[in-house]
Design a protein around this nucleic acid. Structure first.
Length: 493
RNA sequence: GGUCCCAUCGUCUAGCGGUUAGGACACCGGGUUUUCAUCCCGGCAACAGGGGUUCGAUUCCCCUUGGGAUCACCA
């Protein structure tokens, strides 16, 4: 077993963001590539922003994507599994409190009396200058009470104390290495006395993250680059505890088309919306993996196994990528086209138009086969196939706006349709025979396909677009095709 | 404002000192006996700017500009 252990550690403050999916996937691929372990940990220490449904939504999305962890929290049949990977559960064991109090005993951390409000005032006063909070500022806030057992006051790290006790940190600063961005170093004077345990007894991200990554023996922390600036805090903690820090990889952000952070306006951000619109998870993943990674070749479409085989940190990009929905559509369409009809049929089960309810499987499969190549995502299915299941009202604009047909008089149109009707009445309505009959009709009328076929197509579908004419007619069948031509004829008067 | 990150076609990207700067998406033409799509062919389109280093910079260094992150009892 490889010693590579990665983790995805979302916060249930809402749904799973597609940007988070890319992060999860990179963690997953890296672990799989090395035969390592991919872990899911829930970071729910912020009880104020906690969204109860968030937990289920995150797992639902990961499950849909097939990113089940090798280890860690999961929900199976409504049951929460491995809750020891949930930080709020871990907090109940007193784990974080114990570690923090050890630091207090060592004189490296202290109970802090400053209120958030007063802290903000301090900051305001320090406008335009760097502001770092220090223990020496505590004196004026001490109300004489001693800290209660419930953690009435938060615990802060005492950086000044660290400076005097850890000379190498005082001299060299806190240094760390990012696997794709190189070396970083922060002077201790830049690191403020940050909070380890909040006054509600829950650990902060900066603290819990370190304790848990160490306990869970995480080898590689692959996360968004918004954490670059707080990594020195984490590394400082590892140094204090004498723990070996994991390797760090900070991913660039994913932006929307407007160059700003991906938002509702530039594309859906909720992963489950992609499922509901009918995107294939493997296509979404393939699209996302290329937003910041490539194998150096011109290959665009990768199977999951290929990605596992080829994924490596050194091919990761450091610059931001823009999420282009059109490229996703292309990717999804290409995945859809690769599917067998039977496989595709199973996947689109929930996307048929209401009118298809009564249709049998064989017919729906036939229709599906005709639209497969033009389907970009499944929720397009109704508009693409409705006319196969129900007679649509005659739409005059289809003819009046047709660049060739609009030149013909209704008499000429009627004449053509009558001939078509007569010809089709003699057809067995197999695709081959229909093709034959249609070709004969071309000769008989002396018309161009653009005119004749368009007219028949419009009369029989009443749709702006449809699959190849002979195929569509064969699927519709003789009765339906002829009756629709009849309807169009009557409409032309 | 302090600290930090980033910078090749509109978009995703290849490039790791010498290339006609390549591919893909999108877009625009053309072809495949109608439309839309698929597929095929073709086209449009980029090294942010300025200094260095070098025989030679898209590539290495610095500055400028632009974009972004962070400066919470959020993660």
């Amino acid at each position: 077993m490889s010693s590579v252990r990665t983790r995805f550690a979302p916060s249930p403050t809402g749904f799973l963001h597609v940007g988070g999916v890319r992060t999860a996937f990179y963690n997953y691929l890296f672990a799989q590539h090395h035969g390592g372990t991919f872990i899911l940990r829930l970071e729910d220490t912020d009880r104020e922003r906690f969204v109860p449904e968030g937990v289920g939504q995150i797992v639902e999305a990961l499950d849909w994507l097939g990113l089940e962890p090798n280890e860690g929290f999961w929900i199976s049949q409504g049951q929460h599994k491995n809750i020891e990977y949930i930080q709020s559960e871990r907090q109940k064991t007193g784990l974080y409190q114990k570690v923090a109090e050890q630091l207090v005993e060592q004189g490296l951390a202290y109970y802090s009396y400053v209120t958030p409000e007063r802290y903000q005032e301090y900051k305001q006063d320090a406008a335009h200058q760097p502001f770092v909070y220090r223990k020496s500022m505590e004196a004026e806030f001490h109300d004489g009470k001693s800290p209660g057992p419930e953690g009435e006051y938060p615990i802060r790290l005492d950086v000044e104390a660290i400076r005097t006790e850890f000379h190498h940190l005082a001299d060299n600063g806190v240094a760390w290495h990012d696997e794709i961005r190189g070396d970083f170093v922060d002077n201790l004077s830049l690191i403020e006395d940050f909070i380890l345990i909040k006054s509600d007894g829950f650990p902060t991200y900066n603290f819990a993250n370190v304790v848990d990554d160490h306990e869970m023996q995480i080898s590689h922390v692959i996360r968004g680059d918004e954490f670059i600036s707080s990594t020195s805090k984490h590394v400082l903690l590892y140094e204090l505890f004498g723990w070996q820090a994991p390797k760090f990889v900070h991913l660039p952000p994913i932006n929307g088309l407007d160059g700003k952070k991906l938002s509702k306006r530039t594309g859906d951000t909720n992963t489950l919306e992609y499922r509901d619109k009918g995107y294939l998870p493997e296509a979404l993943l393939n699209f996302l993996v290329l937003l910041g990674w490539n194998d150096g070749s011109t290959q665009e479409v990768f199977s999951q196994q290929e990605l596992i085989d080829k994924f490596s940190l050194d091919r990761l990009n450091t610059s931001p990528a823009v999420f282009d929905p059109k490229r996703l559509d292309w990717m999804n369409g290409s995945y859809i086209r690769e599917l067998s009809i039977d496989a595709l049929y199973k996947k689109v089960a929930d996307f048929w138009p209401d009118e298809a309810q009564a249709a049998d499987d064989a017919y729906k499969k036939q229709v599906l086969g005709l639209v497969q190549e033009r389907l970009k995502y499944f929720s397009e299915l109704p508009e693409l196939t409705r006319f196969f299941f129900v007679d649509l009202p005659v739409d005059d604009s289809l003819i009046s706006e047709h660049k060739q047909l609009k030149k013909l008089s209704s008499g000429e149109l009627r004449d053509l349709l009558e001939k078509a009707k007569a010809s089709l009445e003699a057809s067995s309505f197999t695709t081959d025979d229909l093709t034959q009959k249609l070709n004969d009709l071309l000769e008989q009328t002396g018309q161009k396909p653009a005119v004749l076929f368009s007219l028949i197509r419009i009369a029989t579908t009443q749709a702006p677009a449809s699959p190849a004419l002979a195929d569509s007619l064969a699927a519709l069948g003789k009765d339906r095709s002829l009756s629709r031509i009849e309807t169009q004829l009557k409409h032309l008067g």
